[in-house]
């Protein structure tokens, strides 16, 4: 297993390095360059060239990239001229909130969709199966902002069940102190994943049930429930781990929409606000952080898969 983990870690590092190159190049694409973006359209050529010299933007692109990597290694993501503040500290303030939101949504999606998928697979082609399939297909096609709007419209404005405003508690632990305020954002973020995961769980379960080892277990006389939960379920859960890793970019991207919709002060809202402010360094910073989080998330999923699957854990890989 060590070999597998090392190989996987190496891949993750290469991807992250590549992403830093992409983000660095995006920074170079700003019309008029970083100086123009920082100093505004009224800056004189003298001011611009002074800015470039002070910040090392007059160096060759390779030197600049090298300096960029060195700064990143020191945890410096750049400087937001609009906020007069380092990008890193701005992001660090918001990151825990997004992690809580994304984490809660992922957990909710897992806990709803796995039982749902199992039930659909067990009662295959029943009325329940068909109606769940239909509803999930629609939920999957519905953009999250539309689902969110409808839920806000009815659950919070008409019925007053849940607030449409974000939790007022500044700390990320508000999820425990103000669970009510978290309900809608987490639900909206989870809906698309619920649709995708339960669909996948159903398919994975049906595929596993057709395997030889299930027939063997039945032939030994194992009771149907045991066959279902001990043999079929455990094996169909394995690919779910990889699926969750693969859908992380979508969930983290979805957090932007949900945070904007509910005015939830996480990294997604920070990204939208800085985009409206033309704050390129900040947008590039959040993009880099979101990507690194995605890469690390799928790395964790792969490691969990390796731990959960004895074929890898016991060293075939």
């Amino acid at each position: 297993m060590t070999g597998f983990l090392l190989r996987r870690l190496g891949q993750a590092i290469i991807v992250i390095l590549g992403v830093t190159a992409v983000v660095f190049l995006l920074g170079q694409l700003i019309p008029g360059g970083q100086a123009r973006a920082a100093l505004g359209p009224k800056a004189t050529p003298m001011q611009l060239s002074h800015f470039n010299i002070v910040n090392g933007f007059n160096e060759s692109i390779w030197v600049q990239y090298w300096h960029y990597i060195l700064r990143l290694l020191h945890g410096n993501l750049g400087y937001s001229y609009r906020n007069n503040q380092g990008v890193t500290s701005l992001i660090l303030n918001r990151l825990p909130k997004t992690i809580v939101l994304v984490g809660a949504a992922t957990l909710l999606a897992i806990f709803v969709s796995i039982p749902m998928g199992i039930t659909q697979a067990v009662r295959r082609n029943s009325v329940f199966d068909y109606s769940a399939t239909g509803v999930l297909f629609f939920l999957y096609a519905m953009p999250d902002f539309f689902i969110g709007e409808v839920l806000i419209l009815y659950l919070s404005f008409d019925l007053h069940w849940f607030p449409s405003a974000p939790p007022t508690d500044a700390s990320a632990w508000a999820v425990f102190t103000q669970p009510n305020a978290f309900f809608l954002p987490v639900l909206v973020l989870a809906v698309t994943s619920i649709a995708a995961y339960s669909r996948y769980m159903r398919g994975s379960m049906l595929e596993t049930v057709a395997e030889d080892f299930i027939r063997t277990a039945q032939a030994k006389g194992a009771p149907p429930r045991r066959v279902l939960y001990r043999h079929a379920l455990r094996n169909s859960l394995l690919p779910m781990i990889t699926l969750i890793g693969l859908t992380l970019p979508a969930i983290i991207g979805g957090a932007i929409i949900v945070e904007d919709l509910f005015n939830y002060p996480g990294m997604g809202l920070l990204t939208v606000q800085s985009a409206s402010n033309d704050d390129v360094p900040l947008v590039l910073g959040t993009t880099l952080v979101a990507t690194i989080a995605t890469v690390l998330g799928s790395l964790v999923a792969d490691v969990l898969y390796a731990v959960a699957d004895p074929r890898i854990r016991l060293g075939e890989g």
Binding site: G253, D278, T286, T287, A290
Partner: peptide
């Protein structure tokens, strides 16, 4: 590996 919406927002900005 870059979440699509983030890349999109960066390009739009």
């Amino acid at each position: 590996s870059i979440p699509g919406l983030f890349l999109l927002i960066a390009l739009v900005t």
